[in-house]
Write a protein that binds this DNA or RNA. Structure first.
Lengths: 254, 254
DNA sequence: AAGTGGTCTAGACCACTTT
DNA sequence: AAGTGGTCTAGACCACTTC
């Protein structure tokens, strides 16, 4: 009678794929598609649960469970009495999800950037492999130093798929205020959803030592990050060297 | 009519506290108490949702939501068709939740331990502060080296509240096979629920260099961990020095 | 007053496991 | 066949926000 009871037969418009999934997972996938396609933009209010339930012809409870998971994955933000909003990098609370370097004392705050180099190059083999590109594809290369209160603490290199970041120039980076992920989201339509970091301890080479203002051989924390957007697509490679004299990398094991 | 509708008045046996919480949160707290008290032990099967619903006089859906959260926090494990089990450190899948050092190549596996020192001491001020003890309280101090395939990679020091780990000796540690957290859980009734790590890069001092078989000054990753049991009570301080030549610390940002 | 997400209930059926 | 967790629905009421 109701549409959901036909679920076991596979009622969704997903084509005749051999995999079945619960209704709420199918709804979640459909909502994710709308997020990815930009039907609702970052920061915007999404349709209410009741509207979505009507649109997908399922009960509100099913939509609710789908949105529950999207909320847990930080793709959307629920606000009681107001509605559900598309998550955005343009808010304080989102900033520290990807910035794990904390001061040993005092409250966290944002570093200032100084860009050393911004250019377009052909992807080296290693970069291409991690970004799932072909070796030689165009990538944007960025090198910058970040400082807290004028004291350098982070030396960072980034590689971004040239395809996705066509108009990215040094000027845009310099004039933009706020975290880079905000720029990527607003200007290039690419939102970072999650990331994975591999961390090592290394000795500062001459170049890093000079830029960070420390002695050659100083132990630095090296974090290699691969960031993913919708559909687990890799869209950023980042290698950061962190000076941990007065800061630490915070990792919550839960 | 039904017991839940009296919720807004505060129906639970929590005393006349000024804070109100949803019914499922109260149920969650009651279940957590039973877990903490050992009414159901690690690895054991818990009562079914239907039984718990009857016991607490709420609907199955409310118990379900409570257990959903406990499951998300890794306090319990659900298995369809079988039931809900109390989480335990005695299973492969639980081991890598607190062991983040991964080999750069190949599949993760467990290190072998060699204990350097095990003794009872008075807590230094810094240790006491982090473990929320009084300075001078008894603590168990452990120092060990861990190796992968015979190659040293981790130098670790631990401080544990003496109160909680009364019978902990070097012999117990040496004869016990498997992760220390399994020993703590089975023999001392203390389960680690979550932990917080502060990570820095440091230079190997003479002692560390000798034990890890590297040159003095070699960059090492230093992870200072505070672990918590039920009720967010700190019960372990651990300082690990990791050799990251062939391994890395894995951090998922999500 | 109206709309939103948040909680709670009750009942149905499904998928999986064990007896 | 019986029991378990997993999904789905429908309806009620609450807390919060806005008009």
């Amino acid at each position: 009678m109701n549409p959901a009871s036909s679920n076991p037969g596979g009622d969704a418009a997903q084509g005749a794929s051999p995999t079945f999934s619960p209704l709420y997972q199918q709804i979640k996938a459909l909502i994710t598609q709308s997020l990815q396609s930009g039907e609702w933009k970052p920061g915007e209010l999404m349709p209410s649960e009741v509207e979505l339930a009507a649109r997908f012809k399922v009960s509100q409870g099913t939509v609710r469970k789908a949105i529950d998971e999207l909320s847990a994955e930080n793709l959307v933000v629920r606000r009681q009495g107001k509605g559900t909003f598309v998550a955005t990098h343009h808010e304080e609370r989102a900033h520290y999800r990807f910035l794990r370097l904390m001061p040993d004392e005092g409250v966290p705050h944002h570093p200032e950037s100084r860009f050393i180099e911004v250019k377009r190059i052909r992807a080296p083999a290693e970069v291409a492999r991690l970004l799932e590109l072909r070796s030689g594809d165009a990538v944007v290369y960025i090198k910058r130093v970040q400082s807290f209160d004028g004291v350098p603490a982070i030396l960072e290199e980034l590689w971004l798929p040239g395809q996705l970041f066509k108009g990215l120039t040094a000027e845009r980076l310099v004039e933009y205020k706020g975290p880079m992920y905000g720029l990527f989201e607003s200007e290039f339509g690419t939102r970072m959803i999650r990331a994975s970091e591999k961390i090592k301890a290394v000795a500062a080479d001459p170049g890093a030592a000079q830029l960070l203002g420390v002695a050659e051989g100083t132990p630095l924390l090296c974090a290699e990050r691969v960031s993913f957007t919708y559909g687990d697509k890799a869209v950023e490679l980042r290698r950061g060297l962190y000076l941990t004299a007065r800061h630490h990398y915070l990792s919550e094991l839960s």
